[in-house]
Design a protein around this nucleic acid. Structure first.
Lengths: 185, 185
DNA sequence: AATTTATGTCAGCCATATTGACATATTCTC
DNA sequence: GAGAATATGTCAATATGGCTGACATAAATT
């Protein structure tokens, strides 16, 4: 789906300037490898679901919403906004489409009736699962190619890459998603 | 820059349905952890440069172009399009701005005078370095928190996540960038 | 001379994000 | 109970960064 032409003939091609001893603390050589690998890996990772989504006239925004509602049944709109880091106006349009087409529904909060708690429908869960399965295939294949410790290593690397302030929240969010009884309304 | 509220009171909270023995080959439990960690890690990773970019009225599109031109001095427009996976019309607008504001310049190809080879100016290299240093700080901090093998483990994981067909090209692209003599025109 | 290639550009469209203002219902607080 | 704060929704305008299609130019290739 995306091939890369590498016919770049660099005008000069001498040896590396200096081997750049990474002095502790101060400015280091940029981590070009990880920077670029993250770019390409993420590009392919989010590319898988795009094919399915485009058939439904949905985009990545819909995927993100559907994903987190599926993983966090009963999530409040405000919390979803916090996770996605977008404004309610942006969420509004996308969410409305998902609701209108029967992938997501809202229920009035039991304790607080101002809240509109979000749930996936059966249809929504089916789509979310389909998309997750595509991404899981890629992950499973990747981890299978590497050693047995690869899953844990990847986990720890990715967690360490998250803003320190958010890290605990994210880990808890993931853990809670794993324990929530899947329930649609 | 983006905190997450986790006040989601899931309506139900019983134990996990089944421990899901991952039978080889067939449909597995989704890799929720890696899926979500990739989302959050990437969000924070690209978030760092955004702050700097927005002051210059640039976006992520400018960052990507500047990054790959900086890393691949003398790159052809066509190759840049292949790497970014966008159309020339999309590139056009962004590239024009970078050129107009003196971050990038074009030179006619020596062998093939149809080509417009792209180079960063000193100003462009300074900005690219600044952005890369922000991302490098995050990566360096993350890897320092983990063991000594963490860099190699992250590398291998990310490479394995890339489409198999592109993998070799990407690895070569990164390696070549590391050896090219940095030269501005 | 004719074709192909590399690039640029015009025009219009779409998706997704933003800000700001305002509306409504509900809950909380004094 | 009145007033403030909260959760959500909505209207309007705007920006960014993608897209397609059509067309133009110059240079290389055949």
């Amino acid at each position: 789906m995306a091939d890369i032409n590498l016919k770049v003939r660099a005008a000069g091609f001498a040896d590396r300037p200096g081997s750049a001893t990474p002095g502790p603390g101060d400015a280091r050589e940029p981590s070009w490898d990880i920077i670029e690998l993250l770019f390409f890996a993420y590009r392919d990772f989010v590319g898988d679901p795009d094919v399915v989504l485009s058939k439904l006239a949905f985009g990545r925004a819909h995927h993100r919403v559907l994903h987190f509602v599926n993983r966090n049944p009963g999530i409040k709109v405000a919390d979803l906004l916090g996770i996605l880091n977008i404004t309610k106006q942006s969420l509004g349009r996308v969410l409305k489409q998902l609701i209108d087409e029967g992938y997501v529904l809202q229920k009035e909060g039991a304790q607080d009736r101002r809240q509109r708690l979000l749930y996936v429908t059966a249809k929504g869960e089916a789509l979310a699962s389909k998309l997750a399965s595509l991404q899981t295939q890629r992950i499973t294949r990747a981890l299978a190619e590497l050693g047995p410790g690869a899953h844990e290593a990847a986990r720890r690397f990715l967690i360490a890459m998250i803003d320190a302030e958010n890290r605990d929240d994210v880990v808890r969010l993931i853990a809670r998603g794993d324990h929530v009884r899947k329930q649609r309304a």
